[in-house]
Design a protein around this nucleic acid. Structure first.
Lengths: 233, 233
DNA sequence: CGATTCTTGATTGTCAGCAATTTTGCTTGC
DNA sequence: GCAAGCAAAATTGCTGACAATCAAGAATCG
């Protein structure tokens, strides 16, 4: 029945593909934070009907990349310090849970796969390919989550990573200390492979602790950086 | 101005209200797990167009209460043991983070509010109003999350609680030991009010630990305890 | 001149209908 | 009697058109 049908006809729903397209534009920085999105314009650009665009935008709103101002407009989400704080704190506990579960139910193939990705990351950094390194970094964390075998966690994590990426693109964020980054990843991988659930969770959670702490202080100091953020639907 | 306008034309978008209606039917057990949803039927029942129903169903799919089989059908989600395990493990870390943050940024009013809800919970249990007690239990956890001042966390938590409620309704789950339940809640409330972030997180996370452990063992034993499949005539 | 109401243009929200797809049920051939 | 294939019904996917709403500027009144 569905042997080669998957290769031939793209069976995915049109609104999903439209959402993919808009999402990649947002994550790629083509559509900047807080910029307005016009249904008609997107509809012409993607050559689909307005209803389809509308469905795609609703999806992206559910993913947190777009916000809807009812009866009025669609906008790309903002990236205030408060948003970043929310994203990183959430990421921490999600990846913490993922690392814990991964450590308890890891197979040999998954272990070697993690080490492989870790090696790629190391090489990319050593060779100065920092853009690749960022992508591989995301892949590594996603791979750990995948070995946790937790569908809902994987879904949430994917959305959070999108938001992390969006925030990084908008703020021009780059890691400062690559050696430290490598050490942290090595330790995390070995903890997962070693089956040390507590340590794996701890390492995954503390991975972003520096950013979280800085953002927490920034917010408590009342410094309203970036653009003011409206309500979220 | 807004005398009777508020009655006639409610400001919320139609598809949101349609989603609310369907969601309440699912959470109320009217639409059982794995049952099929027909767009036309819902459209007639809610007296809105099929497009609106479609948008509502897409929302509910994003919330995890409904699943879409592309080009074929919509179904109410299932409630297998694996689903329950995912839901409770996720709930654990989300409420853990919420309790930690709540403990660090709690105001006096929020503290008394928590104690008030705790009191209501106690009274409902003492008076044998177990249905009310369940609702108040949900309110209490939501209130803790609210004091964490973390929009994305609150959104995710709301969705998870919906799924918890759905699972409870479908499986006929009821707490076994109400005294223990009260103790746990009291301890959690006092930890939050006392500002003990570590203890608050620990208590919130271990709140469902019994269920999680039972489910984990059940799953590792390979016992595939799915809920009944849809009928074949 | 400033505030207020009205009009106009632009944009979003909803609907009904057509197209594509899947499922069902019947027919046909063996 | 039964499997395969085809026709018809049911259902979902997508679109264009119409209605409701909002933002901005013109007109009016103080």
């Amino acid at each position: 029945m569905t042997r080669l049908a998957s290769l031939k006809t793209e069976k995915r729903l049109l609104d999903r593909r439209a959402a993919d397209h808009i999402r990649s534009h947002i994550l790629g920085g083509v559509l900047p934070a807080n910029s307005r999105l016009l249904e008609t314009q997107l509809s012409e650009e993607l050559e689909v009907s307005r209803g389809t665009v509308r469905s795609a935008l609703a999806q992206l709103a559910g993913e947190g990349l777009v916000r809807q101002v009812a009866f009025t407009r669609w906008e790309v989400s903002g990236t205030s310090a408060a948003d970043a704080w929310e994203i990183y704190t959430l990421r921490g506990v999600l990846e913490g849970l993922g690392a814990r579960l991964a450590a308890t139910s890891l197979t040999n193939e998954e272990g070697t796969k993690l080490r492989t990705i870790g090696g790629e990351l190391l090489r990319a950094i050593r060779e100065g390919r920092f853009q690749d390194a960022t992508d591989i970094d995301f892949d590594l964390h996603a791979a750990i989550i995948a070995t946790a075998r937790h569908g809902r966690l994987a879904d949430q994590h994917r959305l959070i990573l999108h938001q992390v990426r969006f925030h990084m693109v908008q703020s021009g964020f780059l890691p400062k200390d690559y050696d430290h980054l490598i050490d942290e990843h090595e330790a995390l991988i070995e903890a997962v492979i070693g089956g040390d659930a507590d340590r794996a969770e701890l390492l995954a959670r503390s991975h972003n602790e520096a950013e979280v702490k800085a953002l927490t202080e920034l917010l408590h100091r009342g410094a309203r950086s970036e653009v003011a953020e409206p309500e979220r639907a």
